[in-house]
Computed example of a mutant assay.
Amino acid sequence: MMRTVGVEEELLLVDAESGEAQALSAAVLESAEREASGDSVFESELHRQQLEFATHPCADMGELAASVHRWRAEAQRHAARAGASVVALATSPLPVSPTIGAGERYRWMAERYGLTAQEQLTCGCHIHVSVSSEEEGVAVLDRVRCWLPVLLALSANSPFWQGQDTKYASYRNRVWGRWPSAGPVDLHLSAERYHAQVRAMVGTGVLRDEGMVYFDARLSHRYPTVEIRIADVCLDPDDTVLLATLVRALVETSAGEWRAGEPPAGVSAALLRVASWQAARAGMEDRLVHPRTLLPEPAPDVLRALLEHVRDALEDSGDLAAVEKALAAVERRGNGARVQREVLARTGSLSATVAECVRITGG
């Protein structure tokens, strides 16, 4: 059986003219819910300047691509009714004063975490891949962890923050890392130990519940999936599909290693944190920490190492040719961070940059 994949994307709501983030999620959700037959795919997020959608699980990547395009277009249609646009940017390029969303949970977070919560206007992409059991899921988490910084570099799409170039490709990753539970973790080794760690973290009272365990990759507390959470939301919808395809292949490869009795690499969380910092800083424009050697190597070489690592899984699923083509396209035009910087260099305007990104978001 082919593993299914689902995608959650967080989008930024912006003024169609100025490009400034707009606190209009309630109006957009109301528009979407009026038309929804059954459960809506759209949800609110921590800030009112955000909108999230989730695809249904798909075994075929062409079906997933159609779903991502469809829900981005639907989000844009509902946003337009509120006088706004949606854009797949992981941070707002223009200055913004984020507004915490309605609801008791969000109020609790605002009170508990103060400025950390207030400043968390960031948009990510979460990839869910089905697993047969929690033991398989934890085995996968232990084996994908070294490759997660490469996915961050590939998806990096947040170079600007409060009107400034941060010098990072993914400043979202740096902001997200302020949460007490965010980032890489050490090996779990069993489902029992994984859950014991989660219980202990929640038991401290620092976290409200297990939904606030923001590991870079975790067992979903709602679905029978592993959830890869490290990525920025991708500017181009084709890159979202590429990311999801690579993640599924990583999961399949890792599960195969576990079944074959191959132990996970014993890289510490401290080293993975350094690798993630480098990926957030460099994106695809400089060197990354190679997952096998833990030495700096050119980003294209590290991407090719990822491709070789999952090649057999991609061949088995019939996705290899599509991934090779998509990776070549990203290497040619760059990730979202590079595209944003190139548009700003060409136009001299962050507003024009957002406008161009609105166009790209729709594919």
Rank of each mutant, 00 (worst) to 15 (best):
T91D: 03
A80E: 14
G83R: 03
R70N: 04
T122D: 06
L121E: 14
T99W: 05
R72W: 07
L121D: 14
C123V: 08
V87A: 07
V129T: 08
L121Y: 08
Y113P: 11
T55D: 00
L94D: 00
S85A: 15
S130C: 02
A75L: 11
E119T: 15
C123M: 12
G62L: 05
G103C: 03
S85V: 00
M109F: 08
T99I: 08
A82Y: 03
L89K: 05
V68N: 14
A73R: 14
A79M: 07
E104P: 01
C123G: 06
V96M: 06
A65L: 06
G101C: 06
W71H: 13
A59Q: 14
T91Q: 06
L89D: 00
L89R: 00
S85H: 14
R77P: 08
S97Y: 02
G114E: 09
I127F: 06
A117C: 15
L94A: 03
E119L: 15
S97G: 04
H126N: 12
P95G: 03
G103S: 09
E63L: 13
V86E: 01
S85T: 05
P95E: 03
S130R: 08
A73V: 10
A102R: 14
L64E: 09
G124A: 15
P57R: 11
G124Q: 02
M61A: 04
L94V: 08
G114Q: 09
H56S: 11
V68P: 12
T91Y: 01
I100P: 00
A65T: 09
L89W: 07
G101R: 10
A65W: 07
E119S: 15
A84G: 11
E111I: 04
H69T: 11
I100T: 13
A80L: 10
Q120I: 15
M61F: 04
R107N: 08
G83Y: 01
G62V: 06
V96G: 05
L89Q: 07
L89C: 03
V86C: 02
A82I: 02
A110I: 01
V86K: 05
T116A: 15
G62C: 02
R105P: 01
C58P: 04
P95F: 09
G114D: 10
C58L: 03
T91C: 08
A80Q: 13
M109S: 07
C58M: 05
A79W: 02
S85L: 08
R81N: 01
S67R: 13
T99H: 06
G103W: 08
R70P: 02
A75W: 00
